[in-house]
Design a protein around this nucleic acid. Structure first.
Lengths: 155, 155
DNA sequence: GTAGATGCAAATAGTTTGCAGCAAT
DNA sequence: ATTGCTGCAAACTATTTGCATCTAC
């Protein structure tokens, strides 16, 4: 799967972060990071844990939690909350974007609107705030012909 | 405190909702609703429960949860999530607005921007979605002179 | 009288943490 | 060798739920 000749950008960034903070690269962290960066969509801990277990059943769930926290701290991952009670993660190598989520089928549409981005910054500035991050989630119905119109727990 | 001659709007709306759905007005529901509508800011269940206990220590926490769910169902309350792990509530009698929160002192600034509101609707429409609701939270630092620059759990 | 509501405690669900042993540097 | 890391289980936090009892209608 992975080409050993061409280390991906996330791996270099992760190793640099570990180095900078006196932390260590481990087999588990590599497996978890590979699962995360190879995943599509917005996996939560359970979904990542399932993938990781398939690769190596000896990895514990707590390590998945700890590693995802590490990825967030290192700036390689971002958290999102879509209302299903779990924390979901996505790679931060892409530009910041917001989410549109169908409450019936759980499909997630990502979008980025420059006007909204600019307005958010301006509004924060007007109130004297320095923006750290912002999260915007629009909940709705996707109205797709094949939307099962059922509550989904798997965005 | 409360003027018995002038029932507040929320009370009429609540009683109508109860009537429409074959539900009942109880002493507990009244106490909890009074605490909620009398509260400022964005209380969570624990904060409301403390207030309610001061009024009547026999009320159980589960009833506070159940009553807030009732208020949300009846359209009298809205939920928000500010990242401290709890669900916070606010009266929905005011116009929809978004939140700017200081991650250091926990202060919450409410704002409403018509351009953003319109853009959210338009973006959803462009993707074929029917909007149910949207939540936007900007996290940052308020930069106030007296901002204690400490993690607060009490927005 | 009857169906809905309550308080309590137990159950869930997601996440965190203490600790003894393991392993990367 | 040292210190960080891991798996496991127990602990925690927020919330929900089963049930016997109570109460608004």
């Amino acid at each position: 799967m992975t080409n050993p000749e061409k280390p991906e950008a996330w791996r270099e960034r992760l190793e640099q972060h570990l180095l900078d903070n006196g932390l260590r690269m481990t087999r588990q962290r590599l497996i978890i990071a590979e699962a995360f960066f190879g995943a599509s969509g917005h996996p939560n801990i359970d979904e990542l844990y399932e993938q990781v277990k398939a690769e190596d059943p000896s990895v514990g769930q707590a390590t998945v939690y700890r590693t995802l926290k590490l990825l967030v701290d290192s700036g390689l991952a971002n958290q999102s909350h879509f209302g299903d009670g779990t924390t979901r993660y996505e790679s931060s190598h892409r530009e910041h974007h917001d989410h549109l989520i169908c409450d019936d089928c759980g499909v997630i549409v990502e979008f980025r609107n420059e006007t909204i981005e600019r307005l958010q910054d301006r509004i924060a500035e007007e109130h004297g705030f320095t923006v750290l991050e912002h999260e915007m989630v629009i909940h709705g119905r996707c109205n797709d012909a094949d939307c099962p119109r059922r509550p989904s727990r798997r965005p």
